[in-house]
Design a protein around this nucleic acid. Structure first.
Length: 506
RNA sequence: GGGCGCGUAGCUCAACGGCAGAGCAGUGGCCUUUUAAGCCAUUGGUUCUGGGUUCGAAUCCCAGCGCGCUCACCA
Protein backbone atom coordinates (compact mmCIF):
# COMPACT_ATOMS: atom_id res chain seq x y z
CA UNK A 1 0.00 0.00 0.00
CA UNK A 2 1.06 3.51 -0.64
CA UNK A 3 2.89 5.37 2.05
CA UNK A 4 1.12 8.71 2.16
CA UNK A 5 2.91 11.92 2.95
CA UNK A 6 1.38 14.48 5.26
CA UNK A 7 0.33 16.52 2.22
CA UNK A 8 -1.44 13.52 0.75
CA UNK A 9 -3.17 12.68 4.01
CA UNK A 10 -4.70 16.15 4.07
CA UNK A 11 -6.03 15.69 0.57
CA UNK A 12 -7.41 12.26 1.41
CA UNK A 13 -9.30 13.89 4.24
CA UNK A 14 -10.68 16.42 1.79
CA UNK A 15 -11.95 13.56 -0.37
CA UNK A 16 -13.69 12.09 2.68
CA UNK A 17 -15.26 15.46 3.47
CA UNK A 18 -16.52 15.85 -0.09
CA UNK A 19 -18.14 12.44 0.03
CA UNK A 20 -19.63 13.23 3.44
CA UNK A 21 -21.25 16.28 1.87
CA UNK A 22 -22.66 14.15 -0.94
CA UNK A 23 -20.18 15.40 -3.54
CA UNK A 24 -18.48 12.84 -5.74
CA UNK A 25 -14.79 13.74 -6.11
CA UNK A 26 -14.49 11.57 -9.25
CA UNK A 27 -17.68 12.10 -11.27
CA UNK A 28 -18.19 9.96 -14.34
CA UNK A 29 -18.80 12.71 -16.87
CA UNK A 30 -17.60 16.19 -17.61
CA UNK A 31 -19.08 18.98 -19.66
CA UNK A 32 -17.23 21.55 -21.65
CA UNK A 33 -18.27 23.98 -24.33
CA UNK A 34 -14.95 25.72 -24.97
CA UNK A 35 -11.29 25.06 -24.61
CA UNK A 36 -9.32 27.80 -22.92
CA UNK A 37 -8.11 29.09 -26.27
CA UNK A 38 -11.60 29.02 -27.79
CA UNK A 39 -13.06 30.92 -24.86
CA UNK A 40 -10.39 33.61 -25.08
CA UNK A 41 -10.50 34.01 -28.85
CA UNK A 42 -14.31 33.97 -28.82
CA UNK A 43 -14.28 36.71 -26.22
CA UNK A 44 -11.72 38.79 -28.09
CA UNK A 45 -13.77 38.48 -31.29
CA UNK A 46 -17.14 39.27 -29.72
CA UNK A 47 -18.67 42.67 -30.27
CA UNK A 48 -18.52 45.08 -27.35
CA UNK A 49 -21.07 44.23 -24.69
CA UNK A 50 -22.00 40.83 -26.12
CA UNK A 51 -22.04 38.09 -23.51
CA UNK A 52 -19.73 35.13 -24.08
CA UNK A 53 -20.78 32.15 -21.95
CA UNK A 54 -18.43 29.21 -21.59
CA UNK A 55 -18.03 25.99 -19.67
CA UNK A 56 -14.39 25.07 -19.27
CA UNK A 57 -12.61 22.00 -17.94
CA UNK A 58 -9.00 21.76 -16.88
CA UNK A 59 -6.40 21.34 -14.23
CA UNK A 60 -5.88 23.95 -11.53
CA UNK A 61 -2.34 25.32 -11.79
CA UNK A 62 -2.42 28.32 -9.45
CA UNK A 63 -4.80 29.85 -6.94
CA UNK A 64 -4.82 33.33 -5.40
CA UNK A 65 -7.48 33.49 -2.69
CA UNK A 66 -8.24 37.00 -1.41
CA UNK A 67 -11.05 36.60 1.05
CA UNK A 68 -14.22 37.37 -0.84
CA UNK A 69 -12.66 36.63 -4.20
CA UNK A 70 -10.32 34.08 -5.60
CA UNK A 71 -8.35 34.05 -8.80
CA UNK A 72 -7.15 30.79 -10.25
CA UNK A 73 -5.48 29.60 -13.42
CA UNK A 74 -6.47 26.37 -15.04
CA UNK A 75 -4.71 24.58 -17.85
CA UNK A 76 -6.24 22.41 -20.54
CA UNK A 77 -4.97 20.92 -23.77
CA UNK A 78 -5.17 24.29 -25.50
CA UNK A 79 -3.45 26.49 -22.93
CA UNK A 80 -4.21 28.44 -19.78
CA UNK A 81 -7.04 30.65 -18.67
CA UNK A 82 -7.84 32.57 -15.53
CA UNK A 83 -10.90 31.87 -13.40
CA UNK A 84 -12.43 34.58 -11.22
CA UNK A 85 -14.59 33.34 -8.36
CA UNK A 86 -16.43 36.07 -6.51
CA UNK A 87 -18.93 36.29 -3.65
CA UNK A 88 -21.25 38.39 -5.84
CA UNK A 89 -21.95 35.49 -8.19
CA UNK A 90 -21.27 32.46 -6.00
CA UNK A 91 -21.96 33.53 -2.41
CA UNK A 92 -19.46 33.35 0.42
CA UNK A 93 -20.18 29.70 1.09
CA UNK A 94 -19.18 28.60 -2.43
CA UNK A 95 -16.05 30.75 -2.46
CA UNK A 96 -15.05 29.25 0.88
CA UNK A 97 -15.85 25.79 -0.46
CA UNK A 98 -13.50 26.33 -3.39
CA UNK A 99 -10.69 27.51 -1.15
CA UNK A 100 -11.24 24.65 1.29
CA UNK A 101 -11.75 21.70 -1.07
CA UNK A 102 -9.83 22.51 -4.26
CA UNK A 103 -6.06 22.22 -4.60
CA UNK A 104 -3.51 22.87 -7.29
CA UNK A 105 -3.53 19.80 -9.52
CA UNK A 106 -7.25 19.06 -9.21
CA UNK A 107 -9.40 18.91 -12.33
CA UNK A 108 -12.28 21.35 -12.27
CA UNK A 109 -15.24 22.23 -14.48
CA UNK A 110 -16.26 25.88 -14.39
CA UNK A 111 -19.12 27.66 -16.15
CA UNK A 112 -19.57 31.40 -16.42
CA UNK A 113 -19.19 34.51 -18.50
CA UNK A 114 -16.05 35.85 -20.07
CA UNK A 115 -14.87 39.20 -18.77
CA UNK A 116 -11.77 41.35 -18.64
CA UNK A 117 -10.03 42.05 -15.36
CA UNK A 118 -8.57 45.36 -14.34
CA UNK A 119 -5.19 44.26 -15.67
CA UNK A 120 -6.72 43.35 -19.02
CA UNK A 121 -6.64 39.55 -18.87
CA UNK A 122 -9.50 37.68 -20.54
CA UNK A 123 -10.99 35.74 -17.64
CA UNK A 124 -13.94 33.49 -16.89
CA UNK A 125 -16.19 34.98 -14.21
CA UNK A 126 -17.40 31.76 -12.63
CA UNK A 127 -21.09 31.18 -11.90
CA UNK A 128 -20.86 27.45 -11.26
CA UNK A 129 -18.07 25.00 -10.68
CA UNK A 130 -17.61 21.39 -9.73
CA UNK A 131 -14.86 18.87 -9.03
CA UNK A 132 -13.93 16.62 -11.93
CA UNK A 133 -11.06 14.72 -10.32
CA UNK A 134 -9.32 15.29 -7.03
CA UNK A 135 -5.54 14.91 -6.98
CA UNK A 136 -4.25 12.98 -3.98
CA UNK A 137 -0.58 13.72 -4.57
CA UNK A 138 0.55 17.31 -4.99
CA UNK A 139 2.09 18.01 -8.38
CA UNK A 140 5.55 19.55 -8.23
CA UNK A 141 3.95 22.81 -9.22
CA UNK A 142 6.15 25.56 -10.53
CA UNK A 143 5.29 29.21 -10.47
CA UNK A 144 5.63 31.31 -13.55
CA UNK A 145 6.70 34.91 -13.26
CA UNK A 146 6.04 37.19 -16.19
CA UNK A 147 8.64 39.92 -16.37
CA UNK A 148 8.16 43.42 -17.73
CA UNK A 149 9.46 42.42 -21.14
CA UNK A 150 7.07 39.49 -21.33
CA UNK A 151 9.55 36.71 -20.73
CA UNK A 152 8.33 34.00 -18.37
CA UNK A 153 10.60 32.84 -15.58
CA UNK A 154 9.76 29.54 -13.94
CA UNK A 155 10.49 29.09 -10.28
CA UNK A 156 10.94 25.74 -8.56
CA UNK A 157 10.14 23.88 -11.76
CA UNK A 158 10.51 20.12 -11.82
CA UNK A 159 13.97 19.91 -13.32
CA UNK A 160 15.69 16.74 -12.20
CA UNK A 161 16.05 14.79 -15.43
CA UNK A 162 15.88 11.44 -13.70
CA UNK A 163 12.71 12.29 -11.82
CA UNK A 164 11.17 13.76 -14.95
CA UNK A 165 11.87 10.55 -16.86
CA UNK A 166 10.69 8.23 -14.10
CA UNK A 167 7.53 10.24 -13.57
CA UNK A 168 6.96 11.47 -17.10
CA UNK A 169 3.28 11.99 -16.27
CA UNK A 170 4.23 14.59 -13.68
CA UNK A 171 6.78 16.14 -16.03
CA UNK A 172 4.16 16.44 -18.77
CA UNK A 173 1.60 17.79 -16.34
CA UNK A 174 3.75 20.66 -15.12
CA UNK A 175 6.21 21.34 -17.93
CA UNK A 176 4.59 22.58 -21.15
CA UNK A 177 7.91 22.39 -22.95
CA UNK A 178 7.96 18.64 -22.37
CA UNK A 179 4.58 18.33 -24.04
CA UNK A 180 5.95 20.41 -26.89
CA UNK A 181 8.92 18.07 -27.32
CA UNK A 182 6.64 15.10 -27.79
CA UNK A 183 4.35 16.97 -30.15
CA UNK A 184 7.46 17.61 -32.21
CA UNK A 185 8.39 13.96 -31.99
CA UNK A 186 4.99 13.07 -33.43
CA UNK A 187 5.58 15.66 -36.13
CA UNK A 188 8.91 14.03 -37.01
CA UNK A 189 7.20 10.66 -37.50
CA UNK A 190 4.35 12.22 -39.44
CA UNK A 191 6.71 14.10 -41.76
CA UNK A 192 8.84 11.02 -42.50
CA UNK A 193 5.74 9.00 -43.36
CA UNK A 194 4.31 11.79 -45.47
CA UNK A 195 7.56 12.13 -47.38
CA UNK A 196 8.06 8.44 -48.08
CA UNK A 197 4.40 7.89 -48.92
CA UNK A 198 4.73 10.74 -51.39
CA UNK A 199 7.72 9.02 -52.97
CA UNK A 200 5.70 5.89 -53.58
CA UNK A 201 7.02 3.84 -50.67
CA UNK A 202 4.74 1.32 -48.96
CA UNK A 203 4.71 1.27 -45.18
CA UNK A 204 4.93 -2.27 -43.86
CA UNK A 205 5.26 -4.05 -40.53
CA UNK A 206 7.56 -7.01 -40.02
CA UNK A 207 8.09 -9.28 -37.02
CA UNK A 208 9.57 -7.99 -33.82
CA UNK A 209 9.76 -11.51 -32.41
CA UNK A 210 12.15 -13.36 -34.68
CA UNK A 211 13.47 -16.92 -34.59
CA UNK A 212 16.71 -15.69 -36.19
CA UNK A 213 17.99 -12.15 -35.73
CA UNK A 214 20.19 -10.31 -38.19
CA UNK A 215 20.84 -7.27 -40.30
CA UNK A 216 23.19 -5.55 -37.88
CA UNK A 217 26.11 -6.32 -35.60
CA UNK A 218 24.47 -6.19 -32.19
CA UNK A 219 23.55 -8.37 -29.27
CA UNK A 220 19.87 -9.32 -29.15
CA UNK A 221 17.41 -9.72 -26.32
CA UNK A 222 16.10 -13.25 -26.04
CA UNK A 223 12.67 -14.46 -25.08
CA UNK A 224 10.73 -17.68 -25.19
CA UNK A 225 7.39 -18.79 -26.55
CA UNK A 226 6.02 -21.15 -23.93
CA UNK A 227 3.52 -23.12 -25.94
CA UNK A 228 5.69 -23.49 -29.01
CA UNK A 229 8.72 -24.12 -26.81
CA UNK A 230 10.64 -21.84 -29.14
CA UNK A 231 13.56 -19.55 -28.49
CA UNK A 232 12.86 -16.11 -29.97
CA UNK A 233 14.81 -12.87 -30.32
CA UNK A 234 13.69 -9.27 -30.33
CA UNK A 235 14.78 -7.83 -33.64
CA UNK A 236 18.01 -5.85 -33.91
CA UNK A 237 17.08 -4.51 -37.36
CA UNK A 238 14.38 -4.81 -40.00
CA UNK A 239 16.74 -5.36 -42.88
CA UNK A 240 16.39 -9.03 -43.68
CA UNK A 241 12.59 -8.97 -43.63
CA UNK A 242 12.28 -5.79 -45.67
CA UNK A 243 14.62 -7.15 -48.32
CA UNK A 244 12.50 -10.31 -48.53
CA UNK A 245 9.72 -7.98 -49.64
CA UNK A 246 11.83 -6.76 -52.58
CA UNK A 247 11.97 -10.38 -53.69
CA UNK A 248 8.16 -10.24 -53.57
CA UNK A 249 8.11 -7.41 -56.11
CA UNK A 250 7.29 -4.69 -53.59
CA UNK A 251 9.69 -2.17 -55.04
CA UNK A 252 9.70 0.50 -52.36
CA UNK A 253 9.07 -0.41 -48.73
CA UNK A 254 9.73 1.23 -45.41
CA UNK A 255 9.12 0.52 -41.78
CA UNK A 256 9.25 2.78 -38.75
CA UNK A 257 9.39 0.81 -35.56
CA UNK A 258 11.28 -0.35 -32.55
CA UNK A 259 14.66 -2.08 -32.58
CA UNK A 260 16.12 -3.72 -29.50
CA UNK A 261 19.81 -4.00 -28.80
CA UNK A 262 21.23 -5.59 -25.71
CA UNK A 263 24.07 -3.14 -25.26
CA UNK A 264 25.15 -0.25 -23.13
CA UNK A 265 23.04 2.82 -22.57
CA UNK A 266 24.31 6.36 -23.07
CA UNK A 267 23.05 9.80 -23.96
CA UNK A 268 22.52 8.53 -27.49
CA UNK A 269 21.69 4.87 -26.88
CA UNK A 270 18.54 3.34 -25.41
CA UNK A 271 18.01 -0.45 -25.36
CA UNK A 272 14.90 0.04 -27.49
CA UNK A 273 14.91 2.77 -30.06
CA UNK A 274 12.94 3.83 -33.08
CA UNK A 275 14.43 3.07 -36.44
CA UNK A 276 13.44 4.02 -39.95
CA UNK A 277 14.56 1.65 -42.69
CA UNK A 278 13.66 1.74 -46.33
CA UNK A 279 14.66 -0.37 -49.33
CA UNK A 280 14.38 0.89 -52.83
CA UNK A 281 14.56 -1.38 -55.84
CA UNK A 282 16.63 -0.28 -58.84
CA UNK A 283 18.24 2.53 -56.84
CA UNK A 284 21.85 2.76 -55.70
CA UNK A 285 23.45 4.52 -52.78
CA UNK A 286 23.84 7.81 -54.65
CA UNK A 287 20.12 7.99 -55.31
CA UNK A 288 19.50 7.10 -51.68
CA UNK A 289 21.81 9.98 -50.74
CA UNK A 290 19.71 12.40 -52.78
CA UNK A 291 16.52 11.10 -51.23
CA UNK A 292 18.00 11.29 -47.73
CA UNK A 293 18.87 14.96 -47.86
CA UNK A 294 15.47 15.78 -49.28
CA UNK A 295 13.69 13.69 -46.64
CA UNK A 296 15.61 15.00 -43.63
CA UNK A 297 15.41 18.62 -44.73
CA UNK A 298 11.67 18.12 -45.35
CA UNK A 299 11.31 16.82 -41.80
CA UNK A 300 13.27 19.76 -40.41
CA UNK A 301 11.03 22.20 -42.24
CA UNK A 302 7.82 20.43 -41.21
CA UNK A 303 8.81 20.15 -37.56
CA UNK A 304 10.60 23.44 -36.93
CA UNK A 305 9.39 25.60 -39.80
CA UNK A 306 12.89 26.04 -41.20
CA UNK A 307 15.75 24.18 -42.85
CA UNK A 308 18.00 25.79 -40.27
CA UNK A 309 17.82 24.68 -36.66
CA UNK A 310 19.90 25.52 -33.63
CA UNK A 311 21.34 22.46 -31.92
CA UNK A 312 23.17 22.94 -28.61
CA UNK A 313 24.06 26.49 -29.57
CA UNK A 314 25.20 25.76 -33.13
CA UNK A 315 23.16 26.48 -36.22
CA UNK A 316 22.67 23.41 -38.38
CA UNK A 317 21.59 23.98 -41.98
CA UNK A 318 19.75 21.02 -43.50
CA UNK A 319 19.24 22.74 -46.87
CA UNK A 320 20.20 20.34 -49.70
CA UNK A 321 22.64 19.57 -51.10
CA UNK A 322 24.70 18.40 -48.16
CA UNK A 323 28.45 18.29 -48.14
CA UNK A 324 29.81 15.00 -49.51
CA UNK A 325 33.21 13.70 -48.52
CA UNK A 326 34.80 10.57 -49.89
CA UNK A 327 36.19 8.74 -46.92
CA UNK A 328 39.64 8.20 -48.39
CA UNK A 329 40.03 11.88 -49.28
CA UNK A 330 38.55 13.02 -45.98
CA UNK A 331 40.95 10.90 -43.96
CA UNK A 332 43.87 11.96 -46.12
CA UNK A 333 43.09 15.59 -45.48
CA UNK A 334 42.46 15.08 -41.77
CA UNK A 335 45.50 12.90 -41.05
CA UNK A 336 47.84 13.11 -44.04
CA UNK A 337 47.61 9.33 -44.39
CA UNK A 338 46.19 7.57 -47.45
CA UNK A 339 44.43 4.44 -46.29
CA UNK A 340 44.61 2.99 -49.79
CA UNK A 341 48.39 3.04 -49.65
CA UNK A 342 48.32 0.60 -46.75
CA UNK A 343 46.76 -2.80 -47.20
CA UNK A 344 47.25 -4.08 -43.67
CA UNK A 345 47.10 -2.88 -40.09
CA UNK A 346 50.83 -2.82 -39.42
CA UNK A 347 51.58 -0.69 -42.44
CA UNK A 348 48.73 1.72 -41.69
CA UNK A 349 49.76 2.01 -38.03
CA UNK A 350 53.33 2.79 -39.06
CA UNK A 351 52.14 5.51 -41.43
CA UNK A 352 49.98 7.03 -38.73
CA UNK A 353 52.87 7.09 -36.29
CA UNK A 354 55.04 8.69 -38.96
CA UNK A 355 52.33 11.35 -39.30
CA UNK A 356 52.58 12.09 -35.60
CA UNK A 357 49.43 10.24 -34.57
CA UNK A 358 49.08 7.78 -31.74
CA UNK A 359 47.00 4.85 -32.99
CA UNK A 360 45.89 1.95 -30.77
CA UNK A 361 48.38 -0.90 -30.69
CA UNK A 362 47.95 -4.18 -32.56
CA UNK A 363 44.75 -3.12 -34.31
CA UNK A 364 43.69 -4.56 -37.66
CA UNK A 365 43.25 -2.22 -40.61
CA UNK A 366 39.49 -1.89 -40.24
CA UNK A 367 39.78 -1.01 -36.59
CA UNK A 368 42.44 1.63 -37.35
CA UNK A 369 40.23 3.22 -39.97
CA UNK A 370 37.37 3.32 -37.49
CA UNK A 371 39.69 4.96 -35.02
CA UNK A 372 40.84 7.54 -37.59
CA UNK A 373 37.21 8.34 -38.37
CA UNK A 374 36.06 8.83 -34.82
CA UNK A 375 39.23 10.62 -33.78
CA UNK A 376 39.88 13.01 -36.65
CA UNK A 377 36.90 13.22 -38.97
CA UNK A 378 33.54 12.70 -37.27
CA UNK A 379 33.90 15.49 -34.69
CA UNK A 380 34.36 17.96 -37.58
CA UNK A 381 31.14 16.92 -39.30
CA UNK A 382 28.85 19.42 -37.65
CA UNK A 383 26.89 20.52 -40.70
CA UNK A 384 24.99 17.70 -42.43
CA UNK A 385 27.58 15.68 -44.31
CA UNK A 386 27.66 12.41 -46.20
CA UNK A 387 30.77 10.34 -45.76
CA UNK A 388 30.87 7.81 -48.59
CA UNK A 389 32.80 4.88 -50.08
CA UNK A 390 33.80 2.76 -47.12
CA UNK A 391 36.56 0.17 -46.96
CA UNK A 392 35.11 -3.29 -47.13
CA UNK A 393 36.97 -4.16 -43.88
CA UNK A 394 34.38 -2.28 -41.85
CA UNK A 395 31.30 -2.90 -44.01
CA UNK A 396 30.58 -6.58 -44.46
CA UNK A 397 27.01 -6.07 -45.63
CA UNK A 398 27.43 -3.63 -48.51
CA UNK A 399 28.10 -4.21 -52.18
CA UNK A 400 31.54 -3.52 -53.58
CA UNK A 401 32.13 -0.84 -56.14
CA UNK A 402 32.46 -2.25 -59.65
CA UNK A 403 36.14 -2.85 -60.38
CA UNK A 404 37.17 -1.93 -56.84
CA UNK A 405 36.57 -4.93 -54.54
CA UNK A 406 38.14 -3.26 -51.49
CA UNK A 407 35.64 -0.39 -51.44
CA UNK A 408 31.92 -0.67 -50.87
CA UNK A 409 29.09 1.59 -51.92
CA UNK A 410 28.10 2.88 -48.54
CA UNK A 411 27.49 6.23 -46.90
CA UNK A 412 26.74 7.55 -43.47
CA UNK A 413 25.07 10.86 -42.74
CA UNK A 414 26.66 12.89 -39.96
CA UNK A 415 25.14 15.86 -38.17
CA UNK A 416 26.45 17.67 -35.09
CA UNK A 417 29.34 15.22 -34.90
CA UNK A 418 27.27 12.07 -34.58
CA UNK A 419 25.95 9.45 -36.93
CA UNK A 420 22.40 9.99 -38.06
CA UNK A 421 21.96 7.40 -40.77
CA UNK A 422 23.67 4.60 -42.63
CA UNK A 423 22.98 3.33 -46.11
CA UNK A 424 24.40 1.23 -48.88
CA UNK A 425 23.90 -0.42 -52.16
CA UNK A 426 22.63 -3.75 -50.93
CA UNK A 427 23.99 -7.18 -51.59
CA UNK A 428 21.70 -9.20 -53.83
CA UNK A 429 23.96 -12.07 -54.89
CA UNK A 430 22.73 -15.13 -52.97
CA UNK A 431 26.03 -17.00 -53.25
CA UNK A 432 28.03 -14.00 -52.07
CA UNK A 433 25.55 -13.49 -49.23
CA UNK A 434 25.88 -17.11 -48.15
CA UNK A 435 29.65 -16.95 -48.04
CA UNK A 436 29.45 -13.74 -45.97
CA UNK A 437 27.16 -15.43 -43.49
CA UNK A 438 29.70 -18.21 -43.15
CA UNK A 439 32.54 -15.69 -42.86
CA UNK A 440 30.74 -13.71 -40.15
CA UNK A 441 29.81 -16.87 -38.31
CA UNK A 442 33.47 -17.78 -38.24
CA UNK A 443 34.66 -14.33 -37.15
CA UNK A 444 32.34 -14.25 -34.19
CA UNK A 445 32.56 -17.92 -33.26
CA UNK A 446 34.21 -17.03 -29.97
CA UNK A 447 31.35 -14.79 -28.97
CA UNK A 448 28.01 -16.59 -29.10
CA UNK A 449 25.89 -13.52 -28.71
CA UNK A 450 27.31 -11.42 -31.49
CA UNK A 451 27.67 -14.27 -33.91
CA UNK A 452 25.60 -13.81 -37.02
CA UNK A 453 23.41 -16.84 -37.42
CA UNK A 454 22.86 -18.23 -40.90
CA UNK A 455 19.41 -17.24 -42.11
CA UNK A 456 18.49 -20.02 -44.54
CA UNK A 457 15.07 -18.61 -45.33
CA UNK A 458 16.59 -15.28 -46.24
CA UNK A 459 19.02 -17.00 -48.60
CA UNK A 460 16.14 -18.95 -50.14
CA UNK A 461 14.34 -15.67 -50.77
CA UNK A 462 17.40 -14.14 -52.35
CA UNK A 463 17.86 -17.15 -54.60
CA UNK A 464 14.48 -16.38 -56.16
CA UNK A 465 16.07 -13.14 -57.34
CA UNK A 466 16.33 -9.78 -55.64
CA UNK A 467 16.48 -6.61 -57.70
CA UNK A 468 19.48 -4.35 -57.21
CA UNK A 469 18.52 -1.89 -54.51
CA UNK A 470 19.58 0.78 -52.10
CA UNK A 471 18.86 0.43 -48.39
CA UNK A 472 18.75 3.02 -45.64
CA UNK A 473 18.52 3.14 -41.86
CA UNK A 474 18.15 6.12 -39.56
CA UNK A 475 17.75 6.57 -35.83
CA UNK A 476 14.51 8.49 -35.50
CA UNK A 477 15.28 9.35 -31.89
CA UNK A 478 18.52 11.01 -32.97
CA UNK A 479 16.75 13.01 -35.64
CA UNK A 480 14.25 14.06 -33.00
CA UNK A 481 17.10 15.12 -30.72
CA UNK A 482 18.44 17.34 -33.49
CA UNK A 483 15.07 18.90 -34.23
CA UNK A 484 14.14 19.48 -30.57
CA UNK A 485 17.60 20.61 -29.44
CA UNK A 486 17.95 17.83 -26.85
CA UNK A 487 21.35 16.54 -25.83
CA UNK A 488 20.08 13.24 -24.47
CA UNK A 489 17.98 10.52 -26.07
CA UNK A 490 16.15 10.26 -22.77
CA UNK A 491 14.64 13.66 -23.36
CA UNK A 492 12.94 12.50 -26.56
CA UNK A 493 11.66 9.18 -25.22
CA UNK A 494 8.50 9.32 -23.14
CA UNK A 495 9.60 6.42 -20.99
CA UNK A 496 13.32 5.80 -21.45
CA UNK A 497 14.91 2.77 -19.91
CA UNK A 498 16.10 3.43 -16.37
CA UNK A 499 17.65 1.05 -13.92
CA UNK A 500 15.64 -0.63 -11.20
CA UNK A 501 12.35 0.78 -12.31
CA UNK A 502 9.09 -0.95 -11.40
CA UNK A 503 10.40 -4.47 -10.97
CA UNK A 504 12.27 -5.87 -8.01
CA UNK A 505 15.61 -7.33 -8.84
CA UNK A 506 16.58 -10.81 -7.78
C1' G B 1 32.94 -1.97 -17.53
C1' G B 2 36.85 2.41 -15.99
C1' G B 3 37.44 7.64 -14.26
C1' C B 4 35.18 12.20 -12.33
C1' G B 5 30.84 14.57 -10.12
C1' C B 6 26.10 14.64 -7.72
C1' G B 7 22.05 12.55 -4.24
C1' U B 8 19.26 17.29 2.05
C1' A B 9 11.30 18.75 3.15
C1' G B 10 6.23 17.53 -2.14
C1' C B 11 9.47 21.09 -5.80
C1' U B 12 14.00 24.39 -6.24
C1' C B 13 18.14 24.87 -3.20
C1' A B 14 21.40 26.38 1.42
C1' A B 15 24.13 24.54 5.54
C1' C B 16 30.50 21.43 4.23
C1' G B 17 32.98 18.24 11.59
C1' G B 18 29.26 21.42 16.34
C1' C B 19 21.08 22.69 17.63
C1' A B 20 19.20 20.58 9.65
C1' G B 21 17.53 25.76 7.19
C1' A B 22 15.13 29.19 3.20
C1' G B 23 11.62 30.22 -0.89
C1' C B 24 7.48 27.98 -3.09
C1' A B 25 3.66 24.23 -2.00
C1' G B 26 0.61 22.76 2.56
C1' U B 27 -2.24 24.24 7.24
C1' G B 28 -4.77 28.44 10.32
C1' G B 29 -5.97 33.78 10.15
C1' C B 30 -6.66 38.91 7.46
C1' C B 31 -7.80 40.78 2.66
C1' U B 32 -13.73 42.44 -3.30
C1' U B 33 -9.41 42.94 -9.59
C1' U B 34 -4.97 39.31 -8.31
C1' U B 35 -1.30 37.01 -11.46
C1' A B 36 5.82 34.17 -8.42
C1' A B 37 -0.59 38.46 -5.09
C1' G B 38 0.56 40.42 -0.11
C1' C B 39 0.77 40.33 5.44
C1' C B 40 0.78 37.33 10.26
C1' A B 41 1.31 32.50 12.36
C1' U B 42 2.52 27.44 11.57
C1' U B 43 3.25 22.01 10.01
C1' G B 44 6.62 19.20 7.39
C1' G B 45 13.23 15.41 7.47
C1' U B 46 15.46 7.49 7.56
C1' U B 47 20.15 14.44 4.93
C1' C B 48 19.80 7.81 -1.09
C1' U B 49 21.10 2.84 1.72
C1' G B 50 24.52 0.06 4.92
C1' G B 51 29.00 0.07 7.57
C1' G B 52 33.25 2.83 9.73
C1' U B 53 36.28 7.12 11.96
C1' U B 54 35.01 10.78 15.85
C1' C B 55 33.07 13.24 22.26
C1' G B 56 30.02 14.66 17.99
C1' A B 57 28.85 13.06 10.80
C1' A B 58 24.28 15.84 5.95
C1' U B 59 29.64 17.07 6.11
C1' C B 60 35.38 12.69 6.60
C1' C B 61 36.42 7.18 5.01
C1' C B 62 34.60 2.32 2.79
C1' A B 63 30.84 -0.46 0.20
C1' G B 64 26.24 -0.48 -2.37
C1' C B 65 22.05 1.88 -5.20
C1' G B 66 20.53 5.73 -8.64
C1' C B 67 21.53 9.80 -11.96
C1' G B 68 24.88 13.10 -14.85
C1' C B 69 29.54 13.89 -17.53
C1' U B 70 33.48 11.25 -19.82
C1' C B 71 36.37 7.08 -21.80
C1' A B 72 35.79 2.14 -23.55
C1' C B 73 32.43 -1.28 -25.81
C1' C B 74 28.76 -0.69 -29.40
C1' A B 75 26.39 1.53 -35.15
Amino acid sequence: MADYTSLEKIRLEKIEELRAEGIEPYPTRAERTHTSAQAISGFEAAVEGAEVRATLAGRIRATRPMGKLTFAHIEDGAGRIQLFLRVNELGQEQVDFFNRAFDIGDFIQAAGVMMRTRTGEATLLVHEFRMLAKAVSPLPAAKDETLEDGTVVRHAALEDSELRARQRYADLAVNPQTRETFRKRAAVLRSLRAFLDGEGFLEVETPILQPIYGGAAAKPFTTFHNQLKQQLYLRISFELYLKRLLVGNLERVYEIGRDFRNEGVSYKHNPEFTQLEFYWAYADYLQVMDLTERMVSFAAKEVTGSYKVVYQGTEIDFTPPWKRIEMRAGLLEATGVDIYAHADGDSLAAALKAAGKNPPADAPRGKLIDWMLSEFLEPKLVQPTFLYDYPRDISPLAKSRPGDPLTVERFEGYVAGFELCNAFTELNDPLDQESRFIEMGRDYAADDEERHPMDEDYLRAMRYGMPPNGGFGMGVDRLTMLLTDKHSIREVLLFPHLRSGASEEE
